[in-house]
Design a protein around this nucleic acid. Structure first.
Lengths: 115, 115
DNA sequence: GTAATTTGCAACCAAATGGTTGTATATAAT
DNA sequence: ATTATATACAACCATTTGGTTGCAAATTAC
């Protein structure tokens, strides 16, 4: 099973950019736990419907949510897979750091006299 | 031991915003594996020194790197702790989703006849 | 059929972002 | 002491962002 996780720079940009806003993070949280239409979401924020609609669009472009048509509504559903990928990316950063520490440790173990 | 991980919305905004740029992500990667001065970093990107300096400032404001004075240089060092916190945040999102699935499963197990 | 709800989208605006160049200051090298 | 290097920072500019209002279209309710 090939789980291809190739996210190009632009896609990663969109994901982190989308997460860099408290309203959008809240929408992701909400729609991960329960689906909601755009207007249901909009009711809970102190901004216009159109503003919330734009936030949802930003999240959708980043594939952090999907919008599913149901009658005249669009049901917004959080996408855990993209969250997982973002987490994975950060995990690789941490791995890099761990690699450096391991190399430093190895160096100290090999050549203690050079200290 | 209290490991306080209280990041307010603005701090989280800064972290994800800072990560939403390929050059900045590259700087974080590099400085997690090996320290580098601002000018050493600047040499490797196709933009002015001042532009790279600004990117480093954005990362510093998000606490993704620290700048340590050494002579006339400023050594940039990636901060794995902030990366870990961001990862943790995303982990909580995933946890929310998992919680929903668990609840749905429980519901199905409890009342199979309502299906 | 008419009215109400939900969404999409365009036009507009202020503020933030990501780049530039130029100048000043501190440190290091000669 | 002078020169070169590294950084900081201001001013400027174009583009993007995050909000607004207004209008059109699709669906649902009466």
């Amino acid at each position: 099973m090939v789980v291809y996780n190739e996210l190009d720079d632009a896609a990663v940009d969109r994901i982190f950019r989308a997460l860099a806003d408290a309203t959008r993070r809240d929408i992701v949280r909400r729609t991960l736990t329960e689906e909601a239409s755009v207007s249901e979401l909009a009711r809970d924020y102190e901004m216009s419907f159109a503003a919330v609609q734009k936030h949802v669009a930003v999240l959708e472009a980043a594939d952090l949510v999907a919008k599913i048509p149901r009658g005249r509504e669009r049901i917004v559903r959080g996408n855990p897979e993209t969250i997982r990928r973002a987490q994975e990316l950060l995990g690789r950063f941490e791995q890099l750091w761990r690699g450096r520490i391991d190399r430093l440790d190895a160096l100290l173990a090999e050549e203690p006299e050079t200290n």
